[in-house]
C-alpha cells in the first residue's frame, strides 16, 4: 500500500499542469506568484517537484505565452498566461479530471472513512 505522501504526490503529478494553466488563465502570473496562488488555495508543493520544469514544458508545447513586465517594486519578471491552445487543453483536461473524479467517487463513495485530524 502506497504511503499517503506518495499517493498525494502521484495525484498531484497528474493534474499540476492543469492547476498551473487554470491559475494563469485567470490572470497572468510569474513563477513565484503561481506558487503563492496555489498555496492560498490549499495546494502546497512542499516535498514535490518544482513548478519550473512544468512551466518549461507548457511553454515548449505552446500552451502558455510569456512576456516580461515589471513586478511590484522588483525586477522585470516573466509572466505566463494561457494561450488559446492552453485554454482548449485546460477545458479538455478539466473535463477529463471531473469524469475521473466522479467515477472514483462512485467507487469510493460507499466506503465510510474517518478523516484523520
Amino acid at each position: 500500500m502506497a504511503s499517503a505522501d506518495h499517493r498525494r504526490s502521484q495525484l498531484l503529478r497528474g493534474v499540476l499542469d492543469l492547476c498551473l494553466l487554470a491559475v494563469v488563465a485567470e490572470e497572468p502570473a510569474y513563477g513565484y506568484e503561481m506558487t503563492k496562488r496555489l498555496r492560498s488555495r490549499g495546494l502546497s508543493i512542499v516535498g514535490e517537484g518544482s513548478i519550473y520544469p512544468l512551466l518549461g514544458r507548457l511553454e515548449r508545447e505552446g500552451l502558455v505565452e510569456t512576456h516580461r513586465a515589471a513586478s511590484n517594486g522588483g525586477p522585470p519578471r516573466k509572466y505566463y498566461r494561457a494561450s488559446s491552445a492552453g485554454q482548449r487543453a485546460l477545458e479538455i483536461g478539466v473535463s477529463e479530471w471531473r469524469g475521473a473524479r466522479d467515477a472514483i467517487d462512485v467507487v469510493l463513495g460507499v466506503v465510510e472513512a474517518e478523516v484523520p485530524q
Partner: peptide
C-alpha cells in the same frame, strides 16, 4: 526555498537539467 523548488532544492544540478530539458533549450 522548499516551498518554491519542491524537492529540487536538494539537487540543484538535477533541477537545472530538468528545467532546461523540459523547456527544450
Amino acid at each position: 526555498a522548499e516551498d518554491v523548488l519542491g524537492n529540487g532544492v536538494f539537487d540543484p544540478r538535477a533541477f537545472a537539467a530538468s528545467w532546461a530539458g523540459e523547456r527544450g533549450v
